[in-house]
Design a protein around this nucleic acid. Structure first.
Length: 443
RNA sequence: GGCCCUAUCGUCUAAUGGUUAGGACGGCGCCCUCUCACGGCGUAAAUCGGGGUUCGAAUCCCCGUAGGGUCACCA
């Protein structure tokens, strides 16, 4: 069997949405699973609508997702080849120059039409099985505006042939295009690739994903603080399911598990809520260092400066934010500011949740100070701190110890627990803030 | 409208003739807990309808119905 070659062939006439990239994901996974190669082909034969900006966005999104192409083509650069084959078809009378009365603005008086033999075409779709069309009703469709201006169907067939594409994996909306393309293949003597038409990705309202109405550009998700691992994982599982119940996959695990036979036939809805779950999970599986790095880059690209305490805040952020944007929100709202400097608080807050007198709280904080003094600086971890304090706290009433301790450290009614706060603050700062709290209490 | 595709909890899906129809997200409830968050446990929730075939149908066939796609000198 020939080496597998798949291609993702978007046209740069707008920002691509999740459905488009889901096709790219499947093409990529299948090619890599089979040890084959993955082609990126920009279909820019419509010079009027194609824009460099959109092409760059596609490249940007694909590289963000980690889908590296093995070959890159720009359809507009195949002009001479397309013209050569278009002329060949005309010479063989499989196509002809047709006189037209332009039906709309800018219409030509001459176009190239395919001489349609009008036979029934049956092809086997790897996802849906046999599909039959009667191509009679297609008529002699147009394949070129002129001999030097090929149209979509012709360009696709020539390029797939020349690039050695063996598997065409694309959206279901291309099913009706397939018989025309097979007709052109036969006229050209080109092989017919294996077709796999993917179910569509729908918006929350069950309508087709549309850039204007309900779909974000892929790069917008990056700006919203989603990480590529999560997006890739989510996209792969939208319309495909591996054996077993595992849901969290890395790119290489996806390649390993992927196959065409477990692809869904029915359309699926793009659900941002589930995407958020994947994002949270993948964010958590990052090391603290990696997490801090990504968040720093995220803040930088948004023009926000990273606070000095950012890397220490990671454990807190990981627990509380599902996206990098939420992490940014926590930083900006001062959620972790206590790591930077002591946050002042009214005395009432210190006592509020303790439900105890100032004298009792002072006594407890002194005791905590004494206990913590016995913890070695090299063993200064949340677990050790908890062990050290907990039995005393339990004995005298947890809320009378832990609440004021936590407020002394974080200055807030609601915050991370005092153990993790102590760890992140370090021994000197922790002890100093407890002393400070004691000074402010009536003796 | 013609042609084509599809149909399991709200959503993503498992079960390829025999299961109390399973899992995940979300929802709800309980627990954990000094607060907030995290987490743990539990729970409600589905085979579009009607006919066949079969001892037996979510699964196979037919007919409906519903949804979607497509019918360009766009891709």
């Amino acid at each position: 069997m020939n080496k597998v070659v798949t291609r993702f062939a978007p046209s740069p006439t707008g920002y691509l949405h999740a459905g488009n990239y889901r096709s790219a994901v499947f093409c990529y996974l299948f090619a890599k699973k089979m040890g084959g190669s993955f082609i990126l082909r920009i279909e820019d034969t419509d010079r009027a609508r194609s824009k460099k900006e959109y092409e760059e966005n596609i490249l940007d999104a694909l590289s963000w997702l980690g889908l590296k192409h093995d070959h890159f083509y720009r359809q507009s650069e195949q002009g001479p080849r397309h013209e050569e084959l278009l002329r060949k078809l005309v010479a063989e009378d499989r196509a002809y120059i047709s006189k037209e009365t332009p039906s709309k603005e800018g219409g030509r008086t001459e176009v190239v039409r395919f001489r349609n033999p009008g036979e029934k075409i049956t092809f086997t779709d790897s996802i849906r099985g046999a599909i039959t069309f009667d191509t009679q009703e297609l008529g002699d469709f147009v394949i070129g505006r002129s001999l030097s201006e090929p149209l979509y169907h012709f360009g696709v067939v020539v390029d797939d042939m020349d690039e050695g594409v063996t598997h065409v994996i694309r959206g279901e909306d291309h099913i009706p295009n397939t018989p025309r393309q097979i007709l052109i293949q036969r006229a050209l003597g080109a092989p017919t690739p294996v077709y796999a038409h993917l179910p569509l990705v729908l918006g929350a309202d069950r309508s087709k994903l549309s850039k204007r109405l309900n779909a974000k550009a892929m790069t917008e998700y990056r700006d919203l603080g989603f990480i590529p691992e999560a997006m890739l994982n989510y996209l792969a599982l939208l319309g495909w399911h591996p054996e077993g119940e595992q849901e969290l996959f890395s790119l290489s695990a996806l390649i390993d598990a992927f196959n065409l036979s477990r692809i869904q036939k029915a359309a699926g809805i793009f659900d941002e809520v589930k995407l958020r779950w994947f994002n949270k999970e993948h964010l958590r599986s990052l090391s603290d260092e990696e997490y801090a790095q990504r968040l720093m880059r995220f803040l930088e690209s948004a023009g926000v400066s990273s606070p000095a305490y950012l890397s220490r805040a990671t454990p807190i952020l990981k627990e509380r934010a599902e996206t990098l944007l939420e992490a940014r929100g926590l930083i900006e709202s001062g959620e972790c500011a206590f790591l930077e400097e002591r946050v002042p608080y009214p005395e009432a807050v210190l006592l509020q949740g303790a439900k105890a007198s100032a004298e009792e709280v002072a006594r407890n904080l002194k005791k905590v100070l004494e206990l913590l003094g016995g913890v070695s600086k090299t063993d200064w971890s949340a677990a050790n701190i908890k062990n050290t304090i907990f039995s005393y706290a339990t004995e005298v009433g947890k809320s009378t110890v832990l609440w004021p301790l936590r407020v002394a450290l974080t200055g807030k009614e609601r915050s991370p627990d005092p153990f993790i706060a102590s760890e992140l603050l370090g021994p000197e700062e922790t002890l100093s803030r407890i002393r400070k709290a004691l000074e402010e209490l009536p003796q």
